[in-house]
Structures are given as C-alpha cells and as structure tokens.
Amino acid sequence: MTDLEDVDLEFVQLGETGLQTSELQFGTWRFGKETEAGNVEIDEERGHELLDAYEAAGGRFIDTADVYGNGKAERWIGDWLADRDRERYTIASKVYWQIREDDPNSRGTNRKNVRHRVERILDRLDTDYLDLLYIHRWDDQTSARELMKTLNGLVESGKVHYLGASTLRPNAWKVAKANEIARSEGWEPFSVVQPRYNLVDREIEGDYLEMARHYGLAVCPWSPLGQGFLTGKYDREDGLTGQSRAAESSRFEEAYLTEENFDLHDELDAVADEVDATPAQTALAWLVHRDGVTAPIVGARTVDQLEENLAAATIDLSDDQVDRLTEAKQGPYPGL
C-alpha cells in the first residue's frame, strides 16, 4: 500500500484554459455539513487538517460551493488560505440552490441571484476572484443567452476567470447550445464540465463525452466512488437483502446495491488485489486512466481516508485491467 509520503500529485491541463490543475482535485462538500442527528460531518479544525494533507501531497485545486455548510466551507477555506500565497491555488465554487426561504429569486441562475451570490462567495473566501465558477445545476427558467451574458460580465469584471457547468444528468445539448451562443456573441464559454461519473454511473459515456471533446472541455467528475459503494464497505448479502450496515435510502439501494453492481465490484476487487491497492484506490485509478477525464474530485471525512484516495494517483493500471473494469458493467454506449 502506498504511503502519502510517496504521493506527489502531478499537474494536468485544464481543458483549453491554459491552466494546470492537480490530477486529483479536492472536494469540500462535507465541510460544515450537518447530519440528521445534528452532528457536523467535518468541522473547521478537521477541514483545515484535510486541506493540509491535500497540500502536502502536492494538491492545489480546491472545489467548493456556496451551499456547502451554508457558506461555512468557503469561510474555512478563506481562513486557511490567509496564511498562504493565494496565487498558488486554483479555487472553484458554484451557484444555483435556493439560499433564502420565500425568495424564489435566490435560486437559479438569474442575473440578480448570480451577481449577488458571487459577491458573497468572494467575501467568504476573502479573495478578489474565483479561478472557476460553476453553475451548480441547469436553470430552465433562465435562458441560455441570459445566463451566458451574465457569466461573461463576471469574467470581464475580473471577478471570475473561467466558467463551468456541474451537472447531475447528461445534458450535452444544453452545454453545446450555451457555448454556441457565447461564441457567436464573443462571450466567455464554458471551459469545464463537472458531471457525475464512476464505474457504476456511466450515463455520460457517448454524447456527453463526445461533446466535451468537441469543445475542448475539461471533464472533472464528482462522485468518483459512487457515493461510497466502490469503497467496498457494502457486501452482496447484506446489500441485496436490504440490511446494509449503514441506514441507506431506498433510492441508494435501488441505484447501487444491485446484483449487476456487485458483479462489477467482484472484478474491482480482483484488479485491486493485482495492483496491491484498495477498491477505492482502484476505482479512482480507473477514472484517472479513462480517456476524456481530466481530474476526478475526491473528498473524505478523515485524513486517513483522504490519504488513501490520493494514493490512487500512484497506481498504474494496465490497458487490460482498465478494459476489464470498463467491461464489468456495460455503459449506455457499448464499446466506449
């Protein structure tokens, strides 16, 4: 097993932006997140420890959103950055989800909401600019033209350098439409996309990845471990009988705890044994080796978990091993 001392994350090209990004990005979605029992998954002290560990491994790309911990994540990142050279780090945040009750304009990507939210993000991070601003989801109430005009204004003002789209479902045509409008008007287009993608969730294979290649977009997947399924903490018997160790939603069980996915996990375990790695590391390594993927976003609750995930960057899978994992569960477009 690889120690963190052996990990030195490399830089990879972030699409056509000219920026270099860490081959594994660090996600902060658990910072300040409260559980149903009222506990905080990651408090500020733990958050800073995780950022320290990521930095020690050579990581320089920090991904957040204004709703993570209701703004706590951004404030904690800003406090952590205060003692460092801001220019050495790439910071990405996101806007979309409603932040004020009974105020429909505090949700979505209308100009009023986006401009207000970006100002608050910069205040919390205590920075003059964002390297990358994502729309967290698509807002069908705001036209693509209005969205891209608003986002271009933020770029021209210097408050944002580059634009991205974080998505749940494959919607290649929406990204393409927005970029065609931006290009026709001489506005800043989307340069990065952040879809869900892992060995189980394969919906972006095909049109979405082809669209990203066509436009030269960086692809930075979230949920690379399938909400924890690919870590190996579930077993076939308990999962399929609905008696999983953790109390999971029925939606999670239907999406992940299936016979097909456990068959895939058997192959994942076999490859992990061959390369002397954990299932989580091997699943991440598959993404790193996957054609069209720029840099997966990893997160963790503890430093030990983060160190395990970051060590995935040192794992070299053979073409045969990548193919075996790819073919263990058929994606929506056979042969891709």
Rank of each mutant, 00 (worst) to 15 (best):
R137S: 11
V114M: 04
T109F: 10
T90P: 02
E119S: 15
L130T: 04
A92S: 13
W97L: 10
Y96K: 05
H116N: 12
L122W: 02
T109K: 02
T109V: 14
R111P: 03
N113R: 15
G78L: 03
D83W: 10
Y129Q: 11
D131H: 13
H136F: 11
R111F: 14
Y129E: 14
D123T: 14
V95A: 00
D131K: 08
R115G: 05
G78M: 05
W80Q: 02
P104A: 07
D85P: 06
Y134E: 01
R100E: 10
D123A: 12
L125F: 08
N105P: 10
D79P: 01
L130Y: 06
T127L: 00
V118P: 00
R88M: 07
I121Q: 10
N105E: 13
T109N: 12
D131M: 09
R111H: 15
K112I: 05
D131C: 10
R88D: 12
E87F: 06
H136I: 06
H116Q: 11
R111N: 12
I91N: 00
N110H: 11
N110R: 13
D83S: 15
I99D: 06
L132H: 08
A82H: 14
L130A: 01
L133E: 07
H136K: 01
I91K: 00
R137P: 10
R86M: 02
Y134R: 00
D128K: 03
S93T: 11
L130H: 04
L132D: 03
Y89H: 08
D79R: 15
K94T: 08
E119F: 14
S93I: 05
R111C: 08
G108V: 07
N113T: 07
I99S: 11
L133W: 06
S106H: 05
D102P: 13
Y134D: 01
R115C: 11
D102R: 15
E87K: 13
A82W: 12
